[in-house]
Simulated assay, not measured.
Amino acid sequence: MKEINRIIQFLFILTLISCKSMEKEKKYHWLATVSAPKEYPAEVYLGNLIADDFSYGFDAIWGTQNTGWGNQGGTMSVSTEQMEIPHTLEFTWLSLVEKKFYTGKWQLDKEKITALFEEGFMNYDTHKRATYDTFIIGLAPKGRVVLWASAAGITKEVGVFQAHDTIITKEKAYENARYMLEKDYAEDMVNDPIYKTFKPEILEKIAKYGRPDPAVYDLYRERYNWKSIILLPEGGVLDETNTSFFNGEIEILGGNELLNDTFSLRTVPNGLAFFYNNKTNNRYGFWADPFDEQEILNAFKKLGNKENIELFFKVAPNNESCRVFVKNKTEEIELKKEVITREQLK
């Protein structure tokens, strides 16, 4: 009898091991890309996003990156079709404005990322559930690193890390990256117009206001308990909102998700679009894109976290204009510097 019990226990253990092994083998298709602020370009030196069965690599061929904080750059195709969730990120880059290299290696919250991929999201273009397919590696001043998961216009922050500065000499650099160590390379990339590192509007912004304080990339991550409230003319039916945030995240809500949206901890938005049908079934879209950065950041900061905050949109009865407020139970601040675009879609 004891022998039979041992066999049963042994088989039970084997079953558990087999189940865990099957869980570990769950795979997804994903690629990766690099993001850096428009004012702080990063030169990719070497990096890897590592899973047990796959490593997505970066090297000098990626060149200079400054698509904007949280925005995707290019991707490199790979022959591998399905990969496990990555568990490690390692990255080294040259901050051209700061003229120094940063490097680091970090363990990822694999359980958090797996849960996010498993949950997925509703793609309101296809009206089907989808999941994430791109990791965005953000490189900011002072060695700040953020990892986002993204797909179909939706972006979620999945990790925040701190790199340390390092010294790389021309003698020790690998051959294809030695150009980064040429005399005045970083300065030329930042200041010489022939390289066109910056778009004209960014150069104009830098000349007028200077570069953002590096601390702002931490400020962008501060969260408030808020939601958007959109007051439409009588008979209007809201069906979708698309919100982008200063921390690089993007949220799209429609259907039941929009109906059931509640106050939750979100970072401050830098843009929001909403779409609705009026009582005669004409479709409209309004875009607050972008908000004035200082105006909206200051408004949220002033209202603070003691009460829920509403980002309140009031559409005029003729569907021609819209006013925007940031408000709680005791105070209301109208945003007057944002750019509102309105379009009749049908």
Rank of each mutant, 00 (worst) to 15 (best):
I136E: 07
G120Q: 08
G285D: 00
C19M: 13
N281W: 15
T280W: 13
P193T: 11
A316Y: 05
G143C: 11
A207F: 02
F117H: 10
G143Y: 08
L11N: 07
T241S: 10
A215I: 14
G153R: 11
S79A: 12
N270Q: 10
D184R: 06
C19E: 11
N225V: 09
H29G: 13
F275V: 08
K38L: 10
S244K: 14
A186G: 09
Y224I: 04
R129Y: 11
N176I: 09
V78M: 08
Q9I: 06
E90R: 15
L259F: 03
Y174W: 11
N66D: 08
N256W: 10
H164G: 06
N281D: 14
E43K: 09
D192L: 06
R342L: 04
K306G: 00
K170A: 10
M122E: 11
D289K: 15
S244E: 11
C19N: 10
K20H: 12
I113N: 03
D184Y: 04
S55C: 03
E293Y: 13
F325Q: 01
I50L: 02
S35N: 06
A299C: 03
D213N: 15
I333T: 11
Y124G: 00
E332W: 01
K337N: 13
I136A: 04
I309Q: 00
S35T: 14
D261V: 03
T103E: 10
L46S: 13
N305L: 04
N281L: 10
K105W: 05
Y284A: 02
P41V: 06
F198P: 00
L311H: 01
I194K: 15
D52I: 01
V97Q: 07
I154R: 15
D165L: 03
K2Q: 11
Y40H: 12
R223W: 02
K329Y: 08
G254C: 08
F274K: 02
S21G: 12
D192I: 05
T75C: 07
T341M: 01
G235C: 12
P214K: 08
L108F: 08
F135K: 04
N319D: 13
E295I: 10
I252Q: 14
V78I: 07
S79C: 03
K172R: 12
N282A: 09
T131W: 14
E334Y: 00
I50A: 00
E334S: 04
E43L: 13
N278F: 06
T114R: 15
D53F: 02
R129I: 05
N71T: 06
A115S: 15
A130T: 13
E334L: 00
K199G: 01
K20W: 15
Q294D: 14
I13D: 05
G210C: 05
Y132W: 11
I136N: 05
V315L: 07
D218G: 03
K208M: 09
D52W: 02
Q162F: 07
K196G: 03
V268Y: 07
E90L: 07
D188G: 05
A288H: 06
G47Y: 15
Y220T: 02
K183E: 15
G153D: 09
F300G: 01
G143R: 11
I230W: 12
N5C: 05
Y28S: 04
L253T: 01
W93C: 00
A215L: 08
F54R: 01
